[in-house]
Each structure stands twice: as structure tokens, then as C-alpha cells.
Design a protein around this nucleic acid. Sequence first.
DNA 1: TAGATTGTTAATCGATTAACAATC
DNA 2: TAGATTGTTAATCGATTAACAATC
Lengths: 216, 216
Amino acid sequence: MEIKEISQAVIGRLPRYYRYLGDLKDEGVERISSQELSELMKVTASQIRQDFNNFGGFGQQGYGYNVEYLYKEIGKILGLDQTHHFIIIGAGNLGQALGGYLNFERRGFIFSGMFDQNPALIGKEVRGVKVQPMEEMEAFVKNNAVDIAVLTIPKTGAVDVAEKLVSYGIKAIWNFAHVDLNVPEGIQVENVHLSDSLMKLSYNINRYDQLVAENQ
Amino acid sequence: MEIKEISQAVIGRLPRYYRYLGDLKDEGVERISSQELSELMKVTASQIRQDFNNFGGFGQQGYGYNVEYLYKEIGKILGLDQTHHFIIIGAGNLGQALGGYLNFERRGFIFSGMFDQNPALIGKEVRGVKVQPMEEMEAFVKNNAVDIAVLTIPKTGAVDVAEKLVSYGIKAIWNFAHVDLNVPEGIQVENVHLSDSLMKLSYNINRYDQLVAENQ
DNA sequence: TAGATTGTTAATCGATTAACAATC
DNA sequence: TAGATTGTTAATCGATTAACAATC
């Protein structure tokens, strides 16, 4: 089977579709047209149809889309029908928050290990998982089929830790450290740079204030 | 002064420029050309020059850009020369992590209040700020010139709380709740949907696995 | 002045939207 | 069959890249 390259713009929209379809499913809605969904989600119907058609036709002319079927298919595309094991490096508040988040488990992401440098945190438990010293990381990754590493450590050291994780065989890094990692091709990285996000917000506040000041 | 509308694509790149320039400044680098910066950041020099020119010329032909000047200018564009007061709604681990993050303060974001529904958390202190009951929110926002509300509560209730915050006069919401808020024009919202981000990562892992399987 | 590098215009590329034929 | 709505092609729009004249 040939796999067409799908743009990250499309991929980025899939989780939102998935969320809306999940809600509709829970409300007992059986079918929906691209038009109805477009009004709900405030995007164009055209975009919805284009997006879905990247993966082959999920709908039916004259009918629309079956909500439950579409929901499941998008889940499959996102790989949510598969199980991934993740570990968290950095057992501070953010690491604990992510470790404690039950919804990840529901989507197939299994929280299986947690590591920290700080001796004071070793042994602490988050949702049944004990914090281990960094020295245990290598053996743990290799023995437990860990796919994903979540980096919730300060930016100093993040690049080094990432490099080590890759050498241990990790496939993907969810990076909360405020630094760009440099990983080999084939290792997936998803950055969550919280302060970048806050700065964008700050820009938009300012921009709006200026706009208002101007039109007075 | 006329203000040109800048695309969010450009705005989204500014924090990253800001970070690199800050690092260069700390390393004592005085000037940099778009070419050098492009190699460092792995973007095209053309894009760098286009981006900066949205805000007027920051460079000098034959010389390049003065690092410190450019750093400061981007900071101003992002509104980091101004002070914003923020409160956090939801004093769980994520809320505590964000409240405890010192770097925000350095950028002009002052953590000034924290609220939660859960009586067990009331009175708890995060970086000198005491958790207050939700009933205190209205008076606090009105009396303390709070600009930004950070929503770290479950998605149930988030829409309601956001609506209330807007009625109290908040300007912007940094939304960590996994739901789309519906706010009036002029209220800035920046969503951080963590599970969406994790799903994208999951997609890319899968995609790469398939690619490898195919080419075997 | 010559060399370097920006600022800016033009060309290209990709993503979004519109339109409509296919088909349920 | 007629009406509805998809799948898909074509048109438009916006963002990125290339090219080069301006200028330090």
C-alpha cells in the first residue's frame, strides 16, 4: 500500500476533529454532514472534506459521515488503537501533573516510569509509579519497551538527556524543556514550549490594545 | 502610526528568535547575519529577513543585525517590556507547576492569585501566593488589575469559568482545559491542548514505523 | 572603493476555499 | 427518481523562498 505524505497542518487538526466527534458520539449523534460539523467547529466544510479525504473516503454521498465510524478511523490514524509506554524525566510539579493525568491512559499511553536527579524525590509515588534515580533509566528503557520519553527538566541538561534516551532506543520525545533538541532522523520530537505560548498571548494582548487605542 | 496586520505564522516564530538571540547575547555575540542565524536555527535566511521586516528594518546592509538591539526590539514587539498580572484557576499539579515557574516573572508576567474549588487546597501556598476559594475571584480580578487568567481546571466548568472571567474584565485566557472556549472578540485565548500534542506525536511515531516497514 | 548583507520585489510553493460532477 | 452531500478538481489565497538592487 502506498502512503501519501500528509502535511502536518492536516495532522494538527485531527485531534480536534477527534475531540468533537467523541463528544458527538457521547451525545448519541449518529451522522453528521461536513456542513454541520463546519458550523460546530468554525472551520469550512471544504476543509473538513479535504482533510478526511487525505485518508480515503470516510463518508457517503447524500448521507454525510457516520460519527462513530469516523471517530474510530481518526483514532486509528492517530495510532490510538495502539499502546505506547512512556516515562517521565523530571519529577517536579509538571512531571507529576503529566504522570497523574488519567486521560492519557485511556488513549493508550501507559505511564510506566519516572526519573529524577534530586535524591529528595526518589521513591516518591505518582499514580503507582515510583520516582527512580537517573542511573536506572538506561536499564529501564531497555527492559520495558518504552517508546516515549517526556522531558520535564530544566533546559540545562535536556539536550544531553535526550541524546542518551535516543541511544537507549527511545522512539519519541515529548519535550517540555525550553530548548531545541537535536535528534537523529526518525526520532519524533514534539515540543511544548510553554513560555513561547505565553509570549504569543502577550503579543496579542498588546496588539489588540494598540488597535483599540488607534481607533479612538 | 499605521499598524500592519502581522500573520500568526510570523508571531509564532518570534519567541524562538527571541530565545536564540538571548542565548547569543549571553554568549557575548555582538552581531549576526541572517545567514549565520539561519544555520543556527535551521530556517532560511530569507524567512528571517522577511520576518524581521514586518516590523521595519532592524539590520544594516553589509553588517547584519546587532544581537542585543534585535533581542530588545523583539521583546518589545512581544510586549515583554510591559507587566502583566495573571491568576491561575485550578490549583492542581499543573496549576502549581505554572505558578512556581520563575521564568515567567522575569518576562514580566506576575503571578498574583490562585483559585480552586477544592476546600482541601484553600490556603495552600505556591511561591507566596495562597489558594483562595472561587468565590473570591470576582473581587480579586476587579481589585488587582489582573490581565491574564490561566485555566488549569478540568474541561467541565471551563467554559463557564471563562465566561465569568470575561465578565470580570479579564483580557486574555491561557487555556489548558481540553475544550474550546467561546469568548467575545477582543479577548485573547491561547490554547495549550496537551493531549492534542501527544496525539500528534503518536501519529508521527506510527507514520515512521509504517514508512520503515514499507521500505524493507 | 569593494565586499557584505540587508530590505524588498518577484517567483514558487503549498494550503485553503470554491465549485461541481459523481453517487448514495 | 429527486435531493442531499460527498469526493475531487480547479481557483484563490497566503506563506515561503529566491533573486537582486540598495546601501552600509
